[in-house]
């Protein structure tokens, strides 16, 4: 029972985020965003950029573990 609590919240949260994301894209189609660089003015650019950056950071971080990760008592030895 208790375990379901967090899962339900997560479900609501996911739905909420998807709704907001959709809404933001719709708004982007209806207005013209002024930006400092043309690249950023492409419809949905910040969205795609944000998504890719996030995935990139996590995946690269994961692989960096191979180089940078040591045991917890590494410096104590």
């Amino acid at each position: 029972m208790k375990n379901n609590n967090l899962k339900t919240y997560a479900k609501y949260f996911t739905q909420f985020i998807i709704a907001v994301a959709g809404l933001l894209l719709i708004i982007d189609f209806t207005i013209y965003r002024h930006a400092y660089f043309h690249l950023e003015e492409i419809i949905g650019f910040p969205a795609i950029f944000g998504f890719i950056c996030f995935v990139f950071i996590v995946i690269v971080g994961k692989h960096l573990r191979k180089i940078l990760m040591r045991k917890e008592d590494y410096y104590d030895k």
């Binding site: 969205a47 944000g50 995935v55 994961k62 573990r65 008592d73």
Partner: peptide, 26 residues
């Protein structure tokens, strides 16, 4: 857009178990 789609990316990574779990480490 940047933030919400980044959160979406997080949810996506967690959903497909791609998000690195925490490991005791230095």
């Amino acid at each position: 857009q940047l933030l919400v789609f980044a959160i979406l990316a997080f949810l996506f990574l967690v959903k497909f178990k791609l998000y690195p779990s925490e490991i005791k480490s230095t």
